[in-house]
Design a protein around this nucleic acid. Structure first.
Lengths: 348, 348
DNA sequence: GCGTTTCATGTTATCGCTATCATTAGCACG
DNA sequence: CGTGCTAATGATAGCGATAACATGAAACGC
C-alpha cells in the first residue's frame, strides 16, 4: 500500500516556491537570498540565518538554469566517451568527475558507441546546454562536429590520442607507440612469430592505431610478417577474443605470441587456450592492452600496457577547468602526454 | 604546431549569435525561428529554408537553458547509480540512455560511491537543474534526501530494490529473494556446507540484503549454519574475492560451496582456487551474482544470478517518461518486478 | 460575395535568477 | 561635525528563449 504524496511546498500562486517567495518570507530582497546561497560574504550573519530558515520552511531549491541565463555560466562541462561499459573509459569518466568535484562544475556525460556520427549528434545536443568546456575521446570527428566545436567559443580537450590536427587542447598518448613498445618488449624476450587480434571496422580509431603500431613495429624489427585477425565491431568482447584465438591457431599454428587490442579480448583468448589445453605462456603467449583489473587478477596474469585512464580524465578536467577560469592561460595549448608502461606478467 | 582558432561567429555586439540575430538575418520574427527549430508544422517551407540558411551562416546553436526557463521544461532526467565502473550499474545507465533516446530527454548521470550522504548531495545538486524526473538506485536514502524528493514535484523511480516504503515508483527485484533462490538451487544439487563472501560495511545495502537472503535461506533449509566472510568497502573487487577465499578455507576447510556477493569477487575466488591447485567444482564450488560477462567467459564458467540490469534501466526510463507525459497515468504506482534467474554453469 | 475557417506569422509579456549600480547606515578621523 | 570610507542591502534591467494571444492573408462554403 502506498502513502499519499505529501503536499508539496507551494507559493501563494500554487507554484513551486521561487527566490522571490523566499525573500518575501525572510523579509529581504531576492538579491540577498541570491548572495546568501552563493556564500557571498556580503550578507550579515543574522540576515543569512533568516534566509536559510525561510529556505528550509518553504522547501526551496535554487534554480540554476534560471541563474545561468543571467550569469552566463551554466556550470556544465560536457564529455563524450566511446562506451560507458568499458572500464577503461569509465575510469576516465570517473577521473573527470572526481577532478570536477568542488569546482562547482557538473559533468554532462554521454557515449557515442564508437561512432563519429553519433558523436556529432551528441556534440550538438550538448552545445545546446551551453557547456563551459567539452572533453572528447579521440582526435577524429566529422567536419560539422569540428566546425561546431570551433564556433562554440569554449575550451575543448581531445583525449586518448594525439590528433594530427588538434582542435584545441590535448591530453593523451600515441596508441601506435604504446603498441609498438609492447611488441619491442616481447621481441626482446625472444618471441618472433607475432599475431594480432583486433576489431574489424574503421570505427574504433584507437584500435586501428594500435594495429598500425603493431604492424610497423613487427616490420621494423625485421620479424616475420605480423598475422592480423580482425573481427566484429567494437566493443570487442571476451567472447570475440576467444573465437579469434581459434582463427589464429588454425591459420598460423606456429604463432608464438598473440597480442590483443584490449585485455578483454586477451582474457577471452586466454580462456580459450585453457579450454584447448594449451599452456600459457609455454605453448603460446598472450598480451593485452589497457591494464584492466582482470589482467592483474586472472591466472596466469596477463601482460598488458597500462595507460592511466583515470589520470587522463583528471588531467583533462584539470586543464579544462584552468582554461575556463583563465581563457588566456599561458600554457593553454601545451600538449599533455600521459604515461604508457608495459606491465609484464606471467602470460608472456 | 597549432593552428589559430578561427573567428567565432559573432553578432554585431560581439556576442555569440542569439535567436534574435538569426531572425533578423532571415527577415522573420524570432518566434518563427523557434518554431522552425522545434519542427513545428506551423512554418512554411520557404520560411523554414530561409531560417535554416541563416542558422547555418551564423553558426547558431539553440540555447536550451534559456528556452526551458519559459517553457518550464528542462529536458533533463537525473539518475544516480552507486558506481559507474561496475558493469551491472553501467548497464542500467545504458538502458536508461537508450530508452531516453528520441524522447528529447537528456540524462544527467552521477554516481554516489555507495554512500547515501553523497547521494543526498547529488540529489540536491541535480534538483537545482530542475530535472523532469529522477531515477535512483536502492530504496534507502537520508531523511533530507527523501524530503527533497517528495517536495520536488517530479516522478521518482527507485530501482534495484523493493523499498519497504517507496517514495513513488519502483522498478526492481528482491536481492534477498534472488540470493535465496541461488542457495536453494545449489542445495538441490546436494551442497550442504555453504559459505558467503561479501562486503563489510553498511553502505552497500543491496549486498547486505543478499547476505540476509543467504543466511535465511541456509537456515530455512536446515543446513549447517552459513559461514560469512566480510571484508572491505564496496565496490568489492576481484582481488578482495581472492583474499576472502583464503579466509574461508582457513576457517572452514570443509566448505563445499562459496557464494559471492558478485561475479567479480567470485572470479577472484575462482582464480585463487586455481593458484592453490584446487579443482572447481570438484574440491570446492563457486557461485556469483549479477551475471557479468566474465562469469560466462572464464574457465570454468561461473554459476550466477542474472538480474537484467539493462532492462531495469529501460523499464525505469520508460516508466519515468510515461509519467512525465501523463502525470495522472492510471498505472503510475504499479510496482514493476524485474526477472531474476539462476544461470547454472560449470563452477557448481 | 461575404462570413468563416485555417494557416502562417508577429507582438508582448513573462520565466527565475543575477549583474550592475544605487542607496543607506555605521564608523573613523582630522 | 562634516567628510570619506566600508559594509550591507535594495531597485532595476536584462539574460534568450517560449507561451499565449493577436493579426493578416488565403481558402472555403453556400
Amino acid at each position: 500500500m502506498h502513502m499519499n504524496k505529501p503536499e508539496q511546498p507551494r507559493n501563494p500562486d500554487g507554484q513551486m516556491p521561487t527566490m522571490a517567495d523566499v525573500a518575501r518570507h525572510a523579509g529581504v530582497s531576492s538579491m540577498s537570498v541570491s548572495r546568501a546561497l552563493k556564500n557571498s560574504d556580503l550578507v550579515s550573519q543574522t540576515t543569512r540565518d533568516r534566509i536559510f530558515k525561510a529556505i528550509e520552511e518553504l522547501g526551496y531549491v535554487l534554480d540554476l538554469s534560471a541563474g545561468s541565463l543571467s550569469s552566463k555560466r551554466t556550470g556544465f562541462v560536457a564529455a563524450i566517451v566511446p562506451s560507458i561499459n568499458n572500464s577503461n573509459f569509465s575510469d576516465t569518466a570517473r577521473g573527470i568527475t572526481d577532478e570536477l568535484e568542488n569546482t562547482g562544475l557538473q559533468l554532462l556525460l554521454a557515449y557515442n558507441d564508437y561512432s563519429v556520427e553519433r558523436e556529432e549528434r551528441l556534440i550538438e545536443a550538448m552545445l545546446r546546454r551551453r557547456p563551459e568546456g567539452i572533453i572528447l575521446t579521440g582526435g577524429i570527428h566529422t567536419d560539422r562536429a569540428r566546425r561546431m566545436l570551433e564556433n562554440a567559443g569554449i575550451p575543448v580537450v581531445e583525449t586518448w590520442d594525439l590528433p594530427a590536427n588538434p582542435i584545441d587542447q590535448v591530453v593523451g598518448f600515441s596508441n601506435a607507440d604504446a603498441m609498438s613498445l609492447l611488441v619491442r618488449t616481447l621481441a626482446a624476450k625472444g618471441y618472433r612469430n607475432f599475431a594480432y587480434i583486433g576489431g574489424t571496422t574503421e570505427r574504433d580509431t584507437r584500435g586501428n592505431q594500435r594495429r598500425t603500431g603493431f604492424q610497423s613495429a613487427v616490420a621494423g624489427l625485421g620479424l616475420p610478417e605480423g598475422r592480423v585477425v580482425s573481427f566484429g565491431v567494437p566493443p570487442i568482447s571476451m567472447e570475440q577474443g576467444a573465437q579469434a584465438l581459434g582463427g589464429v591457431l588454425s591459420q598460423w599454428p606456429d604463432t608464438e605470441v598473440v597480442i590483443c587490442v584490449s585485455d578483454l579480448s586477451a582474457f577471452g583468448a586466454l580462456m580459450e587456450c585453457q579450454r584447448r589445453g594449451l599452456s600459457v605462456p609455454k605453448d603460446i603467449a598472450i598480451a593485452g592492452f589497457g591494464n584492466y583489473e582482470i589482467a592483474a587478477c586472472c591466472h596466469p596474469r596477463i601482460t598488458s600496457v597500462d595507460i592511466e585512464c583515470y589520470e587522463i580524465g583528471r588531467l583533462a578536467a584539470r586543464k579544462l577547468f584552468a582554461t575556463i577560469q583563465d581563457p588566456d592561460h599561458a600554457n593553454r595549448r601545451e600538449l599533455v602526454l600521459t604515461n604508457i608502461r608495459v606491465v609484464e606478467r606471467e602470460s608472456t
